[in-house]
Design a protein around this nucleic acid. Structure first.
Lengths: 225, 225
DNA sequence: CATTGTGAACGCCTTCACAGCC
DNA sequence: GGCTGTGAAGGCGTTCACAATG
C-alpha cells in the first residue's frame, strides 16, 4: 500500500508522527539499527498495533520477523512531515513566552528556523533575541511577504491575538500556531493550531477533581500523551 | 439526566469545557444574560450540536426556546472543572518558559496559583519571580509534601524531565503538566498531560506540505481549535 | 415559535487477531 | 519463530433530526 495517490492520513496519526520521529532520532543517535513496533511503541508511549497501523499509512517499510530499519524509517517519517525542507517561523509578541520560543533549541534539529521577531512595544524594538532583532509589528507585511511557506506564531496577549492573526493572514503565512487564549477567525483557509496552557491546567483539575472518571493511560508503563 | 451517579464525560468534552468557560466569562463580563447553543458555539469555535451534547453531560441547564442562563451555566461549568477551589501549582525549571508560566496572568482568574518555583542552577536560586523565590530542586519534597492536591509543571530541558517527573511524583503531586519534549513514565497513576511546541509545529508543517489532505475547520467562520 | 435534549445513524479511529513473510 | 501489515470487529464521539417544552 505504498503509494495510493491520495494518502489520507488520520489526524491522530499525524499528531503521533512527531513523537515517533523523536523516538527514532534517539534510537538512531544511540546506534540502534532496527526497531520492532513493540519497541517503538514503548518509546513513544503508545501500543504496538497503533504504531503498525500508523506506519502503514506511510508505506510498507517494515520487515516481518525483523522490524523497521531505524534510519530509513526516520527518513520516511521526516519526509512525510515535511521536515526535509526548512520552515521559516515568525514570532509575534516578545514577552516571556516569545523569548522562550525564540531561544528554543528545538528549531535547529527539526528544520524550523526563527527568521523574524515582532512586538508592538517601542521599548523592545531593536533588542536582539537569539541573534534576531525585534521589529515593530508594522514591518510584518514587508518582512514576511517575501517568504514562500512560513509559519506564524502568536505569543501575544489574548486581547490583541485576533489583530495579530489578521496581520499574519494578510502577510500570507501558510499556517499559524496560537499560544494566546483566544478563538481565532481567519479569512482564508489555512492551518491553525492552538496551544493553551490554561486549558491544559483546567483539564488536569477536572480529572483530579473527578478521580472516578479518570482515563487510565494505555499499555506498558503509565506514560503520557 | 441531571445526576446519573457515575457521569462519564468524554475527554473531548472535558477539553472543550475550558473553552466554553472562557467564552461564558466574556459574555458574563459583557452583561449578557442568556446564550443559545448556537451563540456559545460561535464564541467557542465549535458547532451547536456539540455544545448541546457537551452541556447535556453536565446536567439539564438549558431552557427550550430561550437558551442558557450565562451566569448559572458559568458556575456549573466552573464547578465541574473543579475551579471552585484553589489549585496550587509548582513549576520546575525556571528558564524562559518557566518565567513565562510563573508570570502568566491566567492563574488568578482561574483559581490556579503558583506557590513554588524550582531550578537546579545555583545561580538562579533566590531570584524572585512573580513574588516567589526560586528554590533548589532538592527542596521540592519538603515544600510540596504538605500540599494536598497540587499540580506540578515541568518546564525543564527534556534531558532531565524524567528525573523532575520522578521527584514530583514522589513529592505527591496530583497531576503533572509536562512542557518538555519527552515521554514520561510515572510509577503511580496520576494525571499527566503533555504540551509540546515542536509537535505542533511539525503537525502544521505536515498539513502545509500536504494541502490535499487538509482538514477544513468546521462550521461558521474558519476558526481554530 | 425558538431552542433544548437526545435517541439513532454515521463515521472514524482503535484494537484485535491472524495470514503472510522473512 | 518472530514480526509486519491489514481486514474485520469494536468502541466512541459527532452529527442529525425531531419530539418535547417554556
Amino acid at each position: 500500500m505504498a503509494d495510493r495517490f491520495v494518502r489520507r492520513i488520520p489526524e491522530p496519526t499525524v499528531v503521533r508522527l512527531p513523537v515517533y520521529q523523536r523516538a527514532l532520532l534517539a534510537l538512531s543517535a544511540g546506534g540502534v539499527q532496527t526497531v520492532s513496533s513493540a519497541e517503538l511503541a514503548e518509546a513513544a508511549g503508545v501500543n504496538a498495533a497503533k504504531v503498525r497501523k500508523d506506519l502503514s499509512h506511510l508505506g510498507t517499510y517494515g520487515t516481518p520477523g525483523t522490524g523497521y530499519d531505524v534510519n530509513f524509517l526516520l527518513g520516511q517519517v521526516r519526509r512525510e512531515l515535511g521536515l526535509d525542507r526548512e520552515w521559516q517561523v515568525v514570532i509575534v509578541g516578545m514577552g516571556n513566552l516569545g523569548h522562550a520560543l525564540a531561544r528554543s533549541q528545538r528549531f535547529s534539529t527539526q528544520n524550523f528556523r526563527a527568521v523574524a521577531l515582532f512586538d508592538i512595544d517601542p521599548d523592545k524594538i531593536g533588542e536582539e533575541v537569539a541573534g534576531l532583532p525585534i521589529r515593530h509589528i508594522s514591518e510584518l507585511q514587508a518582512v514576511v511577504g517575501g517568504i514562500s511557506r512560513s509559519i506564524g506564531v502568536i505569543a501575544s496577549p489574548a486581547s490583541v491575538a485576533q489583530d495579530v492573526c489578521n496581520r499574519l493572514v494578510e502577510a500570507g503565512v501558510a499556517a499559524i500556531l496560537n499560544f494566546a487564549p483566544a478563538i481565532l477567525t481567519v479569512s482564508r483557509p489555512l492551518q491553525l493550531r492552538q496551544v493553551d496552557f490554561s486549558v491544559e491546567l483546567q483539564v488536569l483539575a477536572f480529572y483530579v477533581a473527578h478521580p472516578e472518571v479518570t482515563v487510565e493511560p494505555e499499555d506498558a508503563s503509565l506514560s503520557g500523551l
